[in-house]
Design a protein around this nucleic acid. Structure first.
Length: 173
DNA sequence: GGCAAGATCCTCT
DNA sequence: GAGGATCTTGCCA
């Protein structure tokens, strides 16, 4: 296995594709955030497996979708192995296909996927997709495009514990 | 059974 | 720049 940090870095530059109602949408991941298992106080998996985060303990490639602040959806990809509880939060991406459908879902043409909640809304990801696999499910993680940028390691955002771990990775160019 | 907090986003001032 | 929306989870009584 590889550690969460390495897995998170490897996701940068890869394409994420969904297709609902015959409308394909695709983005290139530019920002992700790594979360460990029960040894990471900031992770949902910290207190062990519950009904809400059960997908987080699935095998590598499992999609973990949860509701944030009762309003938004946030998507993670499990870093594996099963039972570890380590996953990578998808924070932002660059739209490459289906921007029309994204703009309609978002209700605006700007800022389509520059945040976790927006990314999910633009791609049509909801809680119904929780537990599906990114290799053969409705949400596909495809091979990387050429990376022509620099990967920056920054402190994580929006959390109050273990903020010293620089596990947020941004693709800068 | 009740309450407080949360890996966010949008609108208004 | 600040505050509200809105609901699920986890902890405590």
């Amino acid at each position: 296995m590889i550690d969460v940090e390495t897995f998170a870095r490897s996701l940068l530059g890869r394409r994420l594709r969904t297709e609902f109602d015959g409308e394909p949408t695709e983005i290139v991941l530019t920002e992700v955030e790594a979360y460990g298992g029960e040894d990471d106080p900031a992770s949902h998996a910290f207190r062990g497996e519950t009904r809400r985060n059960r997908s987080m303990f699935g095998p590598e490639g499992t999609l973990y979708v949860y509701r944030s602040y009762g309003v938004h959806w946030c998507a993670n990809i499990v870093a594996g192995p099963a039972g570890e509880g380590a996953a990578v939060l998808l924070r932002a991406g660059t739209p490459t296909e289906g921007t029309t459908a994204m703009a309609r879902r978002r209700g605006r043409s700007e800022h389509l996927c520059d945040g976790p909640g927006k990314l999910c809304q633009a791609l049509g990801i909801t809680g119904e997709l929780d537990g599906t696999n990114v290799d053969d499910g409705p949400v596909r993680l495809l091979e990387r495009t050429s990376i022509d940028g620099t990967v920056l390691a920054l402190p994580r955002v929006g959390i109050s514990r273990a903020t010293e771990r620089r596990w947020r990775f941004v693709l800068a160019r």
